[in-house]
Design a protein around this nucleic acid. Sequence first.
DNA 1: CGAGTTAAAGTCAATATGACCTTTAGGGGG
DNA 2: CCCCCTAAAGGTCATATTGACTTTAACTCG
Lengths: 238, 238
Amino acid sequence: MDDRLKRSVGVELSLVTVDLVILTIREGEVTVLLVERGAEPFKGRAALPGGRVRSDETLGEGALRELREETDIDGTRLHLEQLGAYGDPGRDPRGRVVTIAYLALGPDLPVPKGGTDAAHAYWAPVAELLASPDTLAFDHARVLDDALERVRERLEYTTVAAAFCPEPFTLGDLREVYEVLWGRSLDASNFRRKVTRSEGFVVDTGEQRPQATGRPAVLYRRGPARLLSPPFLRPGTV
Amino acid sequence: MDDRLKRSVGVELSLVTVDLVILTIREGEVTVLLVERGAEPFKGRAALPGGRVRSDETLGEGALRELREETDIDGTRLHLEQLGAYGDPGRDPRGRVVTIAYLALGPDLPVPKGGTDAAHAYWAPVAELLASPDTLAFDHARVLDDALERVRERLEYTTVAAAFCPEPFTLGDLREVYEVLWGRSLDASNFRRKVTRSEGFVVDTGEQRPQATGRPAVLYRRGPARLLSPPFLRPGTV
DNA sequence: CGAGTTAAAGTCAATATGACCTTTAGGGGG
DNA sequence: CCCCCTAAAGGTCATATTGACTTTAACTCG
């Protein structure tokens, strides 16, 4: 840091971190990647992966670096967006720490392992975490809650649901993303109509995937469209 | 700041500020409240009002405090929401400074004046600022750009447009908010239908306001609804 | 082959939208 | 006082979208 900065502001400095809410869907549940904290405060507790931002990187770069270091995930293939800043005094017992939360969405990823920092990373179902918020360190339960609501909204207005599906995927796979995140079942026929008539949402590969039972499903890839217009509103919001 | 924090993190500390994008509509133009910077860096340049976050306040409280100190505006009656964090290295020549930008929306407010910090605050049309982005200090042109896009989107999905209108207001007043921010004219009749049939968007006061010319307009107040469902999509987005 | 299952496709009424037209209620000028 | 202008308010209609529902297709298993 520039010396002038330190002189000019005295003690009014803060620790700035990035935290990641990495969501995926596993076995019909929304799951988030957590790490077991190896240091105080909250040593041994579950927390969102994250860490200090370095002075020579952007916030987004810091998020990608922490993603790699703490979870051994290559974030370039994930959907990554800034969720917001959390800086309530008292959210960290060490003093003022402002964290910039990032939201990362991806298909069911290999559970990270190995001798790195990522050794203590694991997937946890969000439903249980939100039911007992004190499980998580800091204000991470609130961050997770905000992230979940953000994702649910994103499904309405964007095509980001496809980011949860390994390609190629069926429309049933895609529908499950909506159903799991919105917590309600959707009419398969209307869902199909909506998705296939939204230009650029999905692209037909021409291939099929045999199902365990029933008619084979056509396989799709993600299309170029990122916005969904008109949006696909959650039933019951009205 | 806690001594432990200072020891534990060494020099990896940042200055954290809040900046405010305060938007209103004046004479058919979107305008933003700017201040002339009184100190380096960018001394004398136009900038968004803002300043350091204190260690004993939340980010939102800091935003409200800066609003009061720098512009003498009582923010409790404004719509205030967090826009996002900006922390690119190099955005401040002093070193790493992370700013949390807040978006504030309100009716045409009295131009702040007097002997306070607010003496150098003034309204500026955003169109010109975005046309020559170097007018603004730091990365404030980008923040302003993001804020404007956020507002345009908010108009689609929320009832926040009413926050721009001093109460009571006419549907013509409200329509002007949309027209100015979206940069296009709307069909008055369809607009009326959409707003009046959206439950809780506006409430009829029973009063009327004579127009300069034409039939008097019914006066409304803001209703309790905050979300607009179904949304009011910008024409041409499709 | 027939039952069971899921994908895919079609039907239809209700709702929302965009474009456009008509009526209403004022003001100002002649 | 009457006519014209203006903007608000209200109505019409074709089209698009949605939700609920039915029908057909394609496969597996027994």
